[in-house]
Design a protein around this nucleic acid. Structure first.
Length: 278
DNA sequence: ATGCTGCATGGAC
DNA sequence: CGTCCATGCAGCA
């Protein structure tokens, strides 16, 4: 970032704080992060940046579900809402809740639908997943007992040979899941995702895509260490669950999620709790 | 030679 | 016939 001895806050221009007191805010179009002084970064980390500094700006809209005001069209808050097909917007909290309710309805109706939900592959792998789902549900229940975490399943995938290949160390993320549940990384080179597992070890992945014809292929890269640690094998099932909690990380707003791996071979589980940072 | 990155290819749906 | 994605592989460090 800035190599000069003085930097000023991106928001208030204050430059009186020590260099190491500045924190990363949102990601700028250049790929760098806005540098914020302690006061502004604290507002940002608490998710109150737009309501504090942008109240008189245009672009405030109501969430179609809960009515909460969301600052749309703003780089600071662009990831806090989704556009609805029929117009309007919905805040991320409501979006997650709707997804969770829809899934639960599905699970309570028909085990076959449940199996199909898990994997669009109808060829028997779904049966394996269906057997393993009670374990995942148990994990969800345990998570939901934590008042700070409402776990929402984002996606799950049976690891292919390529996904479990140590040399590649990357996981292909189904396009629909990537574009539905992961942050929009259009225009970004990559998005770093920080992970902290239950033992407090920190991991870092890179989320990116490459073009394929007119489409995109989304990948998580830099998985080598975790693949070794969790002993990923083809046929293992990985689930990424969002808890939707806003935390206070070094780099600003975080969206927490859990990464649950189930090894088909040993039937052991490894929990990874982490976050991606915008 | 070796490993990594990103694109190309082709099978499956 | 179009899209997705698992895998192959060229090019580069």
């Amino acid at each position: 970032m800035a190599s000069s001895s003085r930097i000023s806050c991106f928001q208030c221009q204050d430059s009186s704080s020590a260099l190491d007191h500045f924190k990363n805010g949102w990601r700028l179009r250049s790929g760098d992060h806005a540098q914020l002084c302690p006061r502004c970064s604290s507002v940002y980390e608490e998710g109150r940046f737009c309501e504090t500094f942008h109240l008189n700006h245009e672009g405030w809209r109501d969430c179609e579900s809960c009515g909460k005001l969301v600052h749309c069209g703003c780089i600071v808050s662009f990831n806090n809402h989704l556009l609805l097909d029929f117009g309007g917007i919905i805040c991320m909290e409501c979006s997650r809740l709707n997804f969770l309710l829809a899934r639960n309805r599905c699970l309570s109706i028909d085990p076959d639908i449940r199996a199909r939900e898990l994997n669009q592959d109808p060829s028997g792998q779904a049966a394996v997943e269906a057997q393993l789902w009670p374990r995942v549900d148990l994990q969800l229940q345990q998570l939901s007992r934590n008042p700070k975490a409402t776990a929402t399943p984002l996606f799950e995938k049976i690891l292919t040979a390529s996904d479990a290949d140590l040399k590649l160390a990357r996981l292909i993320i189904p396009k629909r899941c990537a574009e539905t549940f992961f942050p929009d990384i259009s225009g970004l080179n990559e998005l770093r995702i920080k992970i902290q597992d239950m033992e407090g070890n920190e991991w870092e992945f890179q989320y990116r895509y490459w073009l394929n014809g007119g489409s995109r292929i989304y990948v998580l890269e830099g998985l080598r260490d975790i693949m070794v640690s969790k002993k990923w094998q083809p046929g293992d099932i990985d689930y990424v669950l969002s808890s939707g909690t806003r935390g206070k990380g070094d780099n600003g707003i975080e969206k927490e999620y859990c990464w649950l791996s189930i090894s088909q071979e040993s039937n052991t589980e490894g929990n990874v709790k982490g976050s991606w940072t915008m």
